[in-house]
């Protein structure tokens, strides 16, 4: 019962006016020679009080209606399927190219535009997820905290195909995504979805930090790798005479590092928008753990109900007024 509220609480100062009918009657006072010989009968007393109370109710209901009585919007906990997910988005400038590795022309879609379209579609279909957004290029950037406001997440995804920056600091980006996951203490399933079109060497020191953080709690890691045609992929094995170092083949080694984390990890290598769509559908299928989510119940305007109560009380008063009978001829009209 504590969730009732007034838009203008100051109207409560007027509320004592509702006591007025209890003190004075609005029925017409009538002159009568003497009431000494009239017995006090219970029906009259009851009717008198009923009318007074009707007056009080009418005044109080009008005051509450004017003050904008409403029931507060609430959030209720429900159980559904979903996860707490951090989208970790690569904003390096190579994302501006198409899958074929050129600047988009004609009807072509750049990699980030394709990823953006499909990701938006994905999050809008995931009803109960809590989503956070982080970005990285040369440095990690906190974009949006964990939120269930899909509109905000869509706005952050919309920003992703805008002029990226040069480098890909994936290690620090992951550290930020892990921080965001750790700040949230609910028992829901954790997901980090890394969307990038390349990889980079992760500093040894950062590697150790990441390993420790992933060991602390289970986090499902997905890597959506938007591969440019003809560039080395995750599963490219170095040919004879080629160097097998993180510097020479960052994708292969980043994948190896992720596999060594001992966390649930899957990589999706997508060379075209269709493959991205498939990968996203797959992730959507995999992330179906039970989750408690909050559903907002909008605030309920009770003004109309206040006015209806006031109207009912007024009808009672009017009925009483119509039933009034003059006992003696009027000598003086009030």
């Amino acid at each position: 019962m504590t969730d009732f509220a007034l838009t203008t609480p100051s109207v409560l100062l007027l509320l004592p006016l509702a006591l007025l009918p209890l003190v004075v009657s609005a029925q017409r006072p009538q002159s009568y020679p003497s009431i000494d010989d009239l017995e006090i009968d219970p029906l009259s007393v009851a009717l008198d009080w009923a009318l007074r109370i009707a007056g009080a109710i009418a005044i109080a209901a009008l005051i509450l209606g004017i003050g904008g009585l409403h029931r507060l919007g609430r959030t209720i906990e429900k159980t559904g399927e979903g996860a707490h997910m951090v989208l970790l988005i690569d904003r390096s400038s190579s994302m501006d190219n198409t899958f074929a590795g050129r600047a988009p022309e004609g009807g072509e879609e750049s990699k980030s535009a394709a990823a953006r379209r499909l990701l938006k579609d994905f999050i809008l279909r995931r009803d109960h997820d809590l989503l956070g957004v982080a970005a990285f290029s040369t440095s990690p950037m906190h974009v949006l905290p964990m939120t269930d406001h899909k509109g905000a997440v869509v706005a952050a995804i919309d920003a992703m195909d805008r002029s990226g920056l040069a480098f890909t600091n994936v290690g620090r980006g992951l550290a930020l995504a892990l921080d965001m996951q750790e700040a949230d203490t609910s028992p829901a399933a954790r997901v980090i979805l890394l969307v990038s079109d390349g990889a980079a060497v992760i500093d040894r020191k950062v590697q150790e930090t990441l390993r420790a953080a992933f060991a602390r709690r289970p986090i499902n890691l997905y890597w959506l790798f938007l591969r440019t045609e003809g560039t080395p992929g995750i599963s490219t094995v170095p040919g004879p005479g080629e160097e097998d170092t993180p510097q020479a083949m960052p994708e292969r080694h980043l994948d190896k590092f992720f596999k060594s984390l001992g966390t649930s990890y899957r990589a999706f290598e997508a060379e075209n928008p269709e493959a991205v769509a498939e990968a996203i559908a797959e992730i959507s299928k995999l992330e179906r753990s039970p989750i408690t989510y909050h559903e907002r119940i909008p605030h309920d305007d009770l003004k109309a109900r206040c006015f209806a109560v006031a109207l009912a009380a007024l009808l009672v008063l009017l009925a009483a007024r119509l039933a009034e009978v003059r006992l003696v001829p009027a000598t003086e009209e009030t």
Binding site: L38, L47, L327
Partner: peptide
């Protein structure tokens, strides 16, 4: 008008 003050219950009494 002394009677005025005691009048209110009469309005109701008349309904009897």
């Amino acid at each position: 008008r002394r009677s005025t003050a005691s009048a209110p219950p009469l309005g109701a009494a008349a309904l009897r």
